[in-house]
Simulated scan of single mutants.
Amino acid sequence: MYSKQEVSTIKQAFWTAFGKYMKPILSADGEFISWSNYKTGIPGVSFKLEADNKTASVTILITQADAELHLAFYEQFELQKNMLEATLEESDWDWQFQATDDYGKHVSYIRKELQGVSVLRQEDWPALISFFKSRIIKLDEYWSSAKYGFEMLL
């Protein structure tokens, strides 16, 4: 069993290693970006990479507080679902419009999870990095052209 400080230190070491591994990879637009802290440029839409002691996930998260805009963002993703799935080269992501975050706020998400891995086990890090790398690069490729449809909603 790890202390909270040990868990924090191990997680920080993983994300630092991931960041160093991804640093030389340019975005689809040819720019240097922070892959582990991906910025979409659209308020209320983010891409999250998360790992704990049981799972890892890549999430498209909609947190827009304005209900109409929140719905419009989710519907825009639904309209672009074929393009998203074609770019990701997988169609088994979990789509949830009615969800709540840890603070009880309404969120929507599109998520892919990897079960049976732990960020606390260094031997799982290659599988985690592979899981995150391929999906965040493909999400970036998708977002490079898809973001304009979202900008038009603002």
Rank of each mutant, 00 (worst) to 15 (best):
residue 98 Q to L: 08
residue 55 T to F: 10
residue 75 E to G: 04
residue 26 L to H: 10
residue 27 S to H: 06
residue 47 F to S: 03
residue 81 K to F: 03
residue 15 W to A: 00
residue 21 Y to C: 11
residue 88 L to T: 06
residue 14 F to K: 00
residue 44 G to N: 05
residue 72 A to R: 11
residue 17 A to V: 06
residue 34 S to A: 15
residue 13 A to W: 00
residue 83 M to R: 12
residue 99 A to R: 05
residue 64 Q to Y: 03
residue 59 T to P: 08
residue 74 Y to S: 06
residue 67 A to Q: 12
residue 40 T to L: 04
residue 101 D to Y: 04
residue 55 T to C: 11
residue 102 D to E: 08
residue 73 F to C: 02
residue 69 L to S: 03
residue 108 S to I: 01
residue 72 A to T: 03
residue 44 G to A: 04
residue 74 Y to V: 06
residue 76 Q to F: 02
residue 15 W to Y: 14
residue 47 F to A: 05
residue 90 E to N: 13
residue 12 Q to G: 05
residue 104 G to W: 01
residue 42 I to V: 08
residue 94 D to Y: 09
residue 44 G to T: 04
residue 78 E to L: 15
residue 84 L to V: 05
residue 85 E to F: 13
residue 78 E to Q: 13
residue 106 H to P: 02
residue 57 S to F: 03
residue 23 K to F: 14
residue 62 I to P: 04
residue 16 T to H: 14
residue 60 I to P: 04
residue 100 T to F: 08
residue 104 G to A: 02
residue 52 D to P: 07
residue 67 A to Y: 08
residue 57 S to P: 05
residue 81 K to P: 02
residue 76 Q to T: 10
residue 58 V to W: 01
residue 94 D to L: 13
residue 96 Q to C: 08
residue 53 N to P: 02
residue 20 K to F: 11
residue 45 V to H: 04
residue 56 A to M: 00
residue 104 G to M: 01
residue 108 S to N: 02
residue 92 D to F: 09
residue 61 L to S: 07
residue 92 D to Q: 11
